[in-house]
Design a protein around this nucleic acid. Structure first.
Lengths: 328, 328
DNA sequence: ACGGTCTTTGTAACCGGTTACATGACGTAC
DNA sequence: GTACGTCATGTAACCGGTTACAAAGACCGT
């Protein structure tokens, strides 16, 4: 037996579909009738068809989330934050993965039309214009970690510059003068911003900062530092664009007999659980909070607030053993 | 200007809505007409309304996922696995969080009616009967980590008994005789199964296994072991129901001056990234694979395979430093 | 020239809800 | 007794697609 529809309930309660709809949605219906309708619905195991409902209401109670393939921590924390806020507000989350090219990306965004009331998009490898063009028009949106060039959607991003700046200042404060920055993938906007901020903060403080490249994986950090040591390069601090690479860097230093932090101070970015255990100085990014804020912003937009702002989410420096003490 | 509908496109291309629908879905339409329709759609920026589409097709291309509040690693890996498989098959994931009571749980499941083609449910704190009752009838479902009592839906679960058994056998093989098992929360089915398997495997091997309680958090592992040591309790191995508690246990042992693994061998469960770094023996659970398999099973059911099987997902013992060597 | 087949297109019903408007019953004021 | 407002309910249109069925035209053989 297929699922019961509202007409089945109407027939059984001997009323019209309109009355059923009103009874179940708490509109004005005589108490006795309402009871009959509820009884009929219960007997048939009637559950309203959300799809049909949203078609006539032009409201879905769902929010679309389009994300790239993310690293574990970031992904789960971000989704968790959004989910927490969404379920608090009575929304469901419709998740879509953004893999490859921009063609597929446009596809993914279009698939959301008619399914969601708003959209949260994170597309670090797409140009802001590309994203804006692909967004279904008229759908409130929040762009995460994309600089808002369009002005149509709101944007919210991680303040990488502030985090990286804090690290460099801290390294300078403990007397380091020659920083090596291990950057993330070139196409990643967070990675680029951290690298840029590192360079400019160092310049402002009158110390050196050299950038070498990595790919956010532990091995790449290890390889990068091993190569520098082999080449006889001198430096007294390492700032990696994420914790994984910082951990790799520490391994390379240990293998070469350098002491951390005496010979070389090390800092990362993200504050993954491992960082605390290894005593790694890092920048704590409250990703779940970022997710919550993205969702809250979106809902504010959906409820009619004018969109178009650009918020930033400030991370926080966490000093631990790998940059402890100062070098006089 | 609101979004264009299929009737707008029809008007502009000077054809009927049926022709537009056919043209865009690749059915038999004269080539010239098809081109005109496509042109009109492009000009209007027409995107089909997925909600309306799924209403008439009785197919949504979405899969509902109902999960409790999970620990970071598990959540992200599980969702990642499902997402990977879903996007490969052209489905979207509709995520819903299952918080508190069973009343709310039923609510969450009902909200899925008419939105999804199938359901993946993980409800460790609900009775299988409760879940079965709340499932919208006629919706293919896969229950994760719930023993299949209903027979209506399929089930897939982690083989905790196999994992825990392997750990106990390994501990016995290196000569340990008095195991302490730090259990997880009593209401968690995985935790219960691990504890039960630990006890029965130990009995089968003729060694001791005492169970103390914890809550999956690092601190609870530390506290449990500290309490045992204070009480003068003797043991030569610890098997924690997850890695976090094992790590806490190691800290308690260190604080008390016990050597790992010489005095006490330690093993965990999950194989979180930290475990590798600390050299913790553990049971590797390929959670992403579990997610993939859950989704694949669901899709098989949706495509008409008879449902009702109960698959199990075997984890794998990973031996590391915390149980290295043997005590003669 | 005519009937039959095939192809292309249009008309309208349908998916399962919501809701504007119409209807009928009832109570009340005049 | 009539006019009117209120309330509960029914009828039918609508949301935006898909598709069964019908109709119209093109092409064929005889």
């Amino acid at each position: 037996m297929p699922d019961a529809t509202i007409r089945d309930v109407a027939r059984r309660a001997e009323v019209s579909v309109a009355t059923v709809s009103r009874a179940l949605n708490g509109l004005a219906v005589r108490e006795a009738t309402k009871a009959r309708v509820r009884e009929a619905a219960r007997e048939l195991g009637y559950v309203p068809h959300a799809g049909a409902r949203s078609l006539s209401l032009a409201r879905t109670n769902a929010i679309g989330v389009v994300l790239p393939d993310l690293h574990g921590e970031f992904f789960s924390e971000f989704v968790r934050g959004m989910d927490r806020e969404a379920s608090r507000r009575g929304y469901l989350l419709l998740l879509s993965n953004l893999h490859a090219g921009s063609e597929q990306a446009a596809q993914a965004l279009k698939a959301m039309r008619g399914r969601v009331d708003g959209l949260i998009v994170m597309a670090p490898h797409l140009s802001p214009e590309g994203v804006a063009a692909a967004l279904p028009s008229g759908l409130p949106s929040v762009l995460v970690n994309t600089r808002d060039s369009s002005g149509d959607a709101s944007a919210i991003h991680l303040d990488n510059a502030a985090g990286a700046g804090a690290v460099v200042e801290h390294l300078a404060a403990i007397g380091r003068k020659r920083i090596v920055h291990i950057a993330g993938p070139a196409e990643n906007i967070d990675a680029r911003e951290r690298a840029d901020a590192c360079v400019s903060a160092a310049r402002a403080l009158g110390i050196e900062c050299e950038v070498v490249s990595g790919d956010f994986e532990e091995e790449s950090g290890e390889a990068a530092i091993a190569a520098l040591l082999n080449a006889g390069h001198e430096f007294d601090a390492i700032f990696a664009a994420n914790d994984n690479m910082a951990i790799g860097a520490i391994q390379a230093l240990r293998a070469a007999g350098r002491q951390v932090p005496q010979d070389v101070a090390v800092a990362g970015f993200d504050d993954i659980p491992l960082a605390r255990h290894l005593g790694l100085t890092t920048v704590r990014v409250r990703i779940a909070e970022l997710g919550e804020r993205a969702l809250a912003t979106l809902i504010a937009n959906m409820e009619g607030a004018q969109s178009g702002g650009d918020e930033s989410h400030a991370p926080e420096l966490v000093v631990r053993a790998t940059t402890a003490g100062s070098v006089e």
